[in-house]
Nucleic acid binder design. Structure first.
Lengths: 144, 144
DNA sequence: AATAACATGCAATTTAGTTGCACATTATTG
DNA sequence: CAATAATGTGCAACTAAATTGCATGTTATT
């Protein structure tokens, strides 16, 4: 979730022209409190605009490739949230295997230190995903 | 990779009868130096034995449910490796987005501390996955 | 205005995994 | 031991998620 990001600016800075669709996809991802999967993003967009499912997938791919958003794995689908940047610290995610929702955890909740790996790793490191799997509070209550 | 594990014993201890197929699936997963996906495990097995793809999926699911092996996400598929146990410390994995291989990193390379989360998390924590994405040494060389 | 480059839509396809049901094998009981 | 129950496996069909090829539309460059 971001109140400080200028999405058009972010796109332009990355060399992507701020087309209607790209801006809208980025708004949906950026304005949501938790990561969404491609279908949810598509469903949200189509409620108010005409857009194709494939276009959503392609835009999500390019936003990930440009480091604007990040892909988070959860169950069999990918979820998308704003990538770490000046306003957004990197943080881990929780995937509930019952309801399938992905939620953000605080950056402090699962501290990781990638520095040791960066010093010795002979390839390129693009991202580090920390994902906690289990059962969320709500599901625990509802299925008790 | 494990030289010290008695796979039949591990299965029995978990309450799973050590059928041919289960023992073989576990051998393939346990004897490999890096995690394999379901298709690779199936392809390896069918070279020497008659086995169905669905059976492989079902056995992998039950081994994961019983905490014998662990599921590691990489690209669009799941990969499988021995779960942490007496002989195998928990460790992070590296997913190369070019060749699609998953490799094990040393436990020390990306230290994580789940304790802070465990103290405050209101749900159930089943597993914590640390996955580094990027480009591996080989692909870096071959595509330079 | 012409052209090139990039973006989008649509249908078809692929990949990874799942389900339902029949048959086979193993375990349990009388 | 046979009878029965429980578990395991195979096969065909199905589903969800994502991708591809190609036509058309839009934007940028000369």
């Amino acid at each position: 979730m971001c109140d400080q990001c200028n999405y058009r600016q972010i796109l332009s800075d990355a060399g992507l022209s701020p087309t209607r669709h790209r801006v809208r996809v980025l708004e949906v991802v950026g304005n949501n409190t938790c990561p969404l999967n491609a279908q949810e993003i598509f469903d949200t967009l189509r409620r108010s605009h005409s857009i194709n499912r494939v276009t959503v997938y392609r835009i999500l791919d390019s936003l990930v490739d440009n480091g604007i958003i990040e892909r988070i794995s959860g169950g069999r689908a990918s979820f998308f949230g704003l990538a770490p940047n000046a306003h957004h610290q990197r943080h881990p995610h929780f995937f509930c295997r019952l309801c399938g929702q992905v939620n953000c955890l605080t950056p402090q909740s699962v501290p990781v230190d990638v520095a040791p790996l960066r010093r010795v790793f002979p390839g390129i490191i693009n991202s580090v995903e920390v994902r906690v799997d289990g059962i969320c509070k709500n599901c625990l209550k509802n299925n008790a």
